[in-house]
Design a protein around this nucleic acid. Structure first.
Lengths: 215, 215
DNA sequence: GTTTTTGTTGATCGAATGATCAACAGCCCC
DNA sequence: GGGGCTGTTGATCATTCGATCAACAAAAAC
């Protein structure tokens, strides 16, 4: 392991020993931890993590009191600030057709969460029964899915009243693209835009029925 | 642990020591393994598994050569025979409206896979990068999703040609119900039937456009 | 250049893990 | 009811795990 550090000089193995500012070192460890735990889950060993971070295993405990603490830090890093504040405002902007609003929102949302790290850590955490996971989805529902539901009712002038489960179905169908790609490692279209737009079109299809008659 | 075995008589702890037929014992271990690994993943210890199965840890190795072998047996148990052969025939039966066929199929399909064990073991295996996982989904796509696509084209007399990604979107939206319930442990409707029917209705909505004109 | 500070390491501990083996004991057969 | 087959157990081994600590050395302060 780390064959590059064992090139010519075999005597002094600690060539690369560098002293970093605690903030920078902590950042390096965090980055390695996110990548490592995303790959193998939180059952991964602190030793291999340390090796990937280019430090000793003992050093991890100078920055994180325990493995659980490191795990929590990884969660916070992955979850925090993942929901952009302007998404709600965009979803509520009734000067724009709902179809366009939804396409924009899910374009940005999938751009934010369709990453190897986010998708997998979220799933590992879900299986582990972590509370942060549930809290994130509850928050997502209250903050974004319910507004989608309300905007659909508003745009159809009350003629179409989708259940929240219909919005979850739209959401799930889209998120499942990321699950197929990053969890199951199946091939999915590189550009998910058209697929998402088609899904949104179908989601809004009940609106066209009442709309055509009333106009 | 096993407090019931330590009731009055403390001297002889092996009261419950029973000799079972190898087939029966193997079955007991398998059942315990499916339940245990579904809960905690394959990182769970053989000792706790043995405890739940009511046997010693050493006995596991009389029935399975290694933990990996036991794991494979659990996979096979969970995957094998999960896709009912008559589903394809039902999906192909053009004497029944496609909407009805899809509702019946996904009613039976979700009844088959929306279990704690199947959902979670499938997800653990997916994150672990197991090949069986990918093979199952490839098989599912070829055997059932492509037929759904073809039947949609046929029923619309070629007027609507959904992409396979549209079928995946339908599928994902439905499966996501099980993910929310068994992976994220979120509340979902006890009767998912109406939700699924609504999703199928939206999936088929493009058909209504061309259909009304041509008739 | 010397001293001080502190980021970093190698060694190590106790607990838990997968796996093995001789010894035990329940069940079948005569 | 007494052997004998074999399902089952307790003890044990070698690793690996998370976590700790004194000792080292690179950067900062003077």
């Amino acid at each position: 392991m780390r064959p590059d550090a064992w090139g010519v000089c075999v005597v002094k193995a600690s060539i690369t020993r560098r002293r970093l500012h605690p903030t920078a070192r902590r950042e390096e460890i965090m980055a390695a931890a996110v990548a490592y735990f995303a790959e193998v889950g939180f059952g991964g060993s602190t030793r291999e993590l340390a090796q990937r971070a280019g430090v000793t295993q003992a050093l991890l405990y100078k920055y994180f009191g325990s493995k659980a603490e490191l795990r929590e830090a990884v969660f916070k890093r992955v979850y925090l600030g993942r929901i952009a504040p302007h998404w709600l405002a965009e979803l509520r902007d009734r000067s724009v057709p709902l179809r366009v609003r939804l396409c924009r929102f899910y374009g940005e949302y999938t751009a934010a969460i369709f990453t190897y790290e986010w998708m997998r850590i979220f799933m590992w955490a879900g299986l582990d029964g972590d509370a942060l996971n549930r809290r994130y989805l509850d928050h997502l529902c209250d903050l974004l899915l319910v507004p989608v539901q309300e905007e659909a009712i508003a745009e159809s002038r009350g003629q179409w009243r989708p259940a929240i489960e219909d919005v979850w179905n739209l959401h799930g169908g889209i998120v499942y693209l990321g699950i197929r790609r990053f969890i199951y490692r199946l091939p999915v279209p590189t550009d998910v835009g058209p697929v998402i737009e088609a899904a949104i079109e179908r989601f809004l299809s009940p609106m066209a029925v009442g709309d055509g008659v009333s106009a």
